[in-house]
């Protein structure tokens, strides 16, 4: 029998298990809990609070109590991907105390969930916090993934017929392996026709600090992504605020007729009576 798995192969050269490889296969969904911790992420907190509120309401609708630690700040990813790991670690560790009870931690962002779930173990490898980081990582879920697989969310569409293109972030798609989640949830909505944009798995060109370090390449990428979405539908939804800020910002700047929205906001809106 074929018995080898990447979890056995991988640890050879890295201090901690390489996140890219084994992680999402090892994910174990918990039974539906009474409570969850909500980690809003800095972009949602500052720019897209409606997406956060939509996520919270969807959770509450499932009878789950949402614990919102008021002292949360950032997952540490910007510093991590820029090479400032000491700073990233300090900020990440400051979040550990926010989640004292063993409830799942949910995030309305594939990117930040990916950071906590896949990179915390590496970031804290060979430090006293290693076990703690791993424990936190195991409890982290991207919110739509959690709604679909843990809450078994069933959506009832109250809206008018609409065509929508979905852009799944690269972290949701590849780091977390949950590209099917957004598709499945949208497909539950009877009046929503999901149109697959051309080159759907291609990156939008955000990449955090990439957008400002390599603005020309980033611009070329977001131009193409915006066009692909417009060609599919006048309305798009996405799992991540970084992509949303990038694509929507480009559409606005170039006065293209494309309206973007966070997937959570869209799902919540569609299921309300006045939708």
């Amino acid at each position: 029998m074929h018995t080898s798995s990447s979890s056995k192969v991988a640890p050879l050269y890295t201090n901690a298990a390489p996140a890219q490889q084994a992680s999402h296969r090892l994910k174990v969904y918990p039974p539906k809990p009474q409570k969850v911790y909500f980690f809003a992420t800095c972009l949602v907190d500052l720019f897209y609070p409606d997406a956060g509120m939509a996520g919270i309401q969807l959770l509450e609708q499932q009878g789950i109590e949402v614990l919102y630690p008021q002292t949360q700040t950032c997952c540490g990813q910007p510093a991590y991907t820029s090479g400032y790991h000491d700073q990233a670690r300090a900020v990440a560790q400051a979040q550990f105390d926010l989640f004292p009870e063993p409830w799942p931690i949910v995030l309305p962002s594939g990117s930040c969930a990916g950071m906590m779930r896949q990179h915390y173990p590496q970031l804290f490898a060979n430090t006293p916090e290693q076990a703690n980081a791993q424990a936190i990582a195991n409890r982290v879920f991207e919110l739509t993934d959690f709604l679909l697989h843990v809450c078994q969310l069933q959506l009832k569409d109250e809206g008018k017929p609409i065509k929508v293109a979905l852009h799944t972030s690269c972290s949701a798609r590849r780091e977390l392996g949950i590209a099917h989640v957004g598709e499945t949830l949208l497909d539950q909505l009877a009046q929503v026709e999901r149109i697959e944009p051309k080159r759907t798995s291609e990156c939008c060109g955000f990449g955090g600090t990439f957008a400002v370090r390599h603005p020309q390449i980033s611009a070329a990428m977001v131009e193409d992504k915006t066009q692909a979405l417009i060609d599919a539908a006048p309305h798009f939804v996405t799992t991540d605020c970084g992509c949303l800020m990038n694509i929507q910002g480009h559409a606005e700047k170039t006065r293209l007729k494309l309206q973007g929205e966070h997937l959570l906001s869209f799902l919540w809106r569609r299921t309300q009576n006045d939708a």
């Binding site: 029998m1 074929h2 018995t3 080898s4 056995k8 192969v9 640890p11 050879l12």
Partner: peptide, 13 residues
């Protein structure tokens, strides 16, 4: 130790 950590290759596929 290093070698022991590389499992034998499975050519089943």
């Amino acid at each position: 130790e290093t070698q022991a950590q590389v499992p034998a290759s499975q050519f089943h596929v």
